[in-house]
């Protein structure tokens, strides 16, 4: 057991250092801060024009944008992390030795998780400076959102790894990821559209389609990591501690289920592309 933990640590160290030395990571951080700065500027312009601001969480919306951009980056890099090693053959070489699916996958999970946590660290510093220079409050709600962000990131990463465990090549991972999220969005959009129509005016066939979509939509809410993101950040805005901890628990269960599934699939799927 201790030995397996040691191997996970060795793999994690290599992967984390490799990612931290790459420009892509800092590029995404820059883009996320740029996007939130842009929103903040519009926000501050609005305050200047109206000379009034009523908000309990003035920085939360820009923070959410940052978290969403970081999450999109993390879901993408975790979705290609296994398939890339499978495609390049390095997964095979690792598995010649005492590396198992479990410690390989855990190393990938912790690597992307730590990248996310480091991003949130940078984000906290950035928003602290914004708060300092703009006098917009660095509220406890913002701190709670950052804490919730840690759990949401773990959901996003475990979902990405699940996609990666299923696929053989980087290209197929990216296509699968886009297809899955595209399908989620399409179902959500269709369901919202049908929900906007009067129940009485719906033909029977559309009514059943709406009922089916409702069930699928409920399912997606448990599968999509971005549904957890949305619910988790809502619990912060509602200032509801019980909802906050329920969402944290959901995240932990989600991560456990998806990582277990990924390990199972990796064992079944093997190391070859």
């Amino acid at each position: 057991m201790a030995n397996q933990g040691r191997i996970t640590k060795i793999l994690l160290k290599r992967d984390l250092l490799y990612s931290l030395y790459s420009w892509g990571y800092y590029g995404v951080l820059f883009v996320s801060f740029f996007a939130s700065s842009f929103i903040l500027k519009n926000f501050l312009d609005g305050i200047r024009e109206d000379d009034i601001l009523v908000s309990a969480f003035p920085l939360n919306y820009p923070l959410y944008i940052t978290i969403i951009i970081i999450s999109l980056y993390l879901v993408l890099i975790s979705a290609i992390s296994i398939s890339r090693e499978r495609e390049q053959g390095t997964l095979e070489v690792l598995f010649y030795g005492p590396v198992t699916s479990k410690n390989f996958l855990m190393a990938k999970f912790w690597k992307d998780f730590f990248l996310g946590v480091i991003s949130l660290g940078f984000t906290a510093v950035y928003f602290f400076l914004v708060s300092f220079f703009t006098n917009l409050g660095f509220t406890p709600g913002l701190v709670r959102a950052l804490i919730m962000g840690v759990f949401l990131i773990s959901c996003v990463v475990s979902f990405g790894l699940f996609i990666s465990s299923l696929t053989s090549r980087v290209r197929s991972s990216v296509i699968t990821l886009i297809a899955v999220f595209g399908a989620f969005l399409a179902i959500q959009f269709s369901y919202s559209t049908l929900l906007g129509l009067e129940k009485e005016s719906l033909p029977t066939s559309l009514f059943y389609i709406r009922e089916t979509l409702q069930l699928v939509f409920k399912g997606i809410n448990w599968v999509s990591p971005f549904a957890y993101l949305s619910r988790g950040l809502d619990s912060v805005l509602l200032d509801n501690w019980s909802l906050f901890f329920t969402n944290v628990l959901y995240c932990v269960v989600y991560v456990t289920v998806f990582l277990s599934l990924s390990i199972y699939i990796m064992n079944r799927r093997g190391v070859k592309a």
Binding site: N3, Q4, Y96, G97, P98, V99, T100, S101, K102, N267
Partner: peptide, 11 residues
């Protein structure tokens, strides 16, 4: 067995 790491160490 697939995850017999002790055996893999000797190969």
């Amino acid at each position: 067995k697939p995850n017999n790491v002790e055996l893999k160490r000797k190969i």
